[in-house]
Computed example of a mutant assay.
Amino acid sequence: MATEQPTSQQREEVALRLEDLIDALIEHPLWRSPPNQNPTLFFTWDFVMRSKYMLSEYDSILAGRAVQFPSQFQGGAGSGEAAAVKVFRDVCSRTVMLEMMVNDTSGRTAMMTGNSGPAVDFGQRVKDAVKALMEACPEDHVLAGMMD
């Protein structure tokens, strides 16, 4: 299991890829301002935003400082090196779920997100952004996060 801290370059790369994915989701042709949101796009965007927030608290968790929204961390954020590494692993392992969601053609993602319509075609830009995020996450952190 990966217990080593990610480098600042790895964290920055993941953060940048999360931003790219957020931009791709917001620029999707089906994206609408509330209250007329496509539920699948909104759910996916919210999922990515939570990952972005979790990663943004890495340094606070590492230093033992309080996080702004502790309820966003399953089991609490914790503090110290092991807790910070766990957060990074969680963020990286969440990309597996994102990959499944954006590549779903069965309609399960739509059904799971309360969308009564057909499966959402996320488009190549979103799919490419998810792939780049997957590539930015060190594989050992992805796998370790899935086992936590």
Rank of each mutant, 00 (worst) to 15 (best):
A2Q: 12
A2H: 10
T3M: 12
T3A: 10
T3H: 12
E4K: 12
P6S: 08
S8D: 14
S8C: 02
R11Y: 03
R11V: 08
R11K: 13
E12L: 11
V14G: 05
V14C: 05
A15Q: 14
L18M: 07
D20N: 13
L21H: 07
I22F: 04
D23Y: 12
L25Y: 08
L25V: 09
H28M: 06
P29C: 06
W31S: 12
R32G: 02
P34T: 09
N38G: 05
P39H: 08
F42I: 02
D46I: 06
D46S: 14
F47P: 01
F47A: 05
V48P: 01
V48N: 02
M49P: 00
Y53H: 04
Y53P: 01
L55Q: 01
Y58K: 03
L62T: 01
G64D: 04
R65F: 08
V67K: 00
V67A: 00
F69D: 03
F73N: 01
F73L: 01
G78Q: 02
G78W: 00
S79D: 08
S79P: 03
G80Q: 11
G80F: 02
E81Q: 13
A84F: 04
F88C: 01
F88T: 00
R89T: 10
D90Q: 11
D90K: 05
D90N: 09
V91I: 02
V96Y: 07
E99N: 15
E99A: 13
E99S: 15
N103C: 05
D104N: 10
A110V: 11
T113N: 14
T113G: 01
T113H: 15
S116Y: 10
G117H: 07
G117C: 06
P118N: 07
F122N: 11
F122T: 09
F122G: 11
F122W: 08
V126T: 14
K127T: 13
K131Y: 10
A132W: 03
L133I: 04
E139V: 15
H141I: 03
V142H: 01
A144M: 03
A144Q: 07
G145A: 05
D148C: 04
D148H: 12
D148G: 13
